[in-house]
């Protein structure tokens, strides 16, 4: 049984239809802690000790955020800078988060097609997430492919419900520890792996 910490960062959650759907009820899943960073730290004064405690007591960490200007919102960056301290998360031979599973769960307005060499955004989502992947590697964590919901403006209610259900499934699988990092590491997105296992909706 793995416990999951969702570090959610959205400066305007009240206007985000997609994220509301994704997160609806996830707190009630066994072992899941939803941490709404903008609600806790409206002044950006991150409580490092508290955050470290939370990290220590969870096996799976999710950086859940919208993609803003090809990166995460400012508070999540603040969180990364402050909490993943040298001498605690990495450095001086100390790796407090070693072997913990971590991945990004993100939403983007642009479709998957625009995030490609030929597309409008020129780079892939995985390329834009390079800093996260490397941060996880620095801390000797196991970085999984991201869970991605794209083209958010075009999503109908039905499609949205499918994405939300997939996210729940993912969290449940991770919670049961039934995930082989080796296998799913080969997929570009976690969505691809889930779709292969459970069949394209």
């Amino acid at each position: 049984m793995h416990s999951i910490l969702i570090l959610f960062a959205h400066p305007r959650f009240e206007k985000s239809r997609v994220n509301r759907a994704l997160l609806a009820g996830v707190e009630r899943l066994p072992g899941v802690t939803l941490r709404d960073l903008y609600e806790h730290y409206p002044d950006f004064n991150v409580d490092v000790e508290r955050e470290k405690e939370l990290l220590s007591s969870h096996q799976v960490i999710v950086w859940h955020h919208p993609l803003y200007m090809y990166s995460c919102p400012a508070l999540l960056k603040q969180w990364l800078d402050l909490v993943l301290e040298y001498g605690w998360a990495h450095g001086r031979g100390v790796y407090s988060l070693q072997d913990r599973i971590v991945f990004n769960a993100l939403t983007s307005g642009g479709t998957r097609e625009t995030y490609s060499r030929a597309g409008h955004n020129r780079f892939t989502v995985r390329e834009f997430l390079a800093p996260f992947a490397q941060t996880a590697r620095l801390c000797r964590m196991r970085y999984l492919p991201p869970f991605v919901v794209q083209g958010t403006h075009l999503l109908g209610e039905e499609q949205l419900a499918v994405h939300a259900a997939l996210y729940r499934t993912l969290l449940e699988l991770l919670g049961r520890g039934e995930v082989d990092a080796e296998t799913i590491g080969r997929f570009e997105f976690l969505n691809d792996w889930l779709n292969q296992v459970f069949g394209e909706p």
Binding site: K15, V18, T107, T152
Partner: peptide, 14 residues
């Protein structure tokens, strides 16, 4: 919402 009302080539995330 602002972006949706004036559809750009690439609306940002919601």
């Amino acid at each position: 919402e602002m972006y949706v009302k004036t559809p750009a080539e690439d609306p940002p995330a919601r």
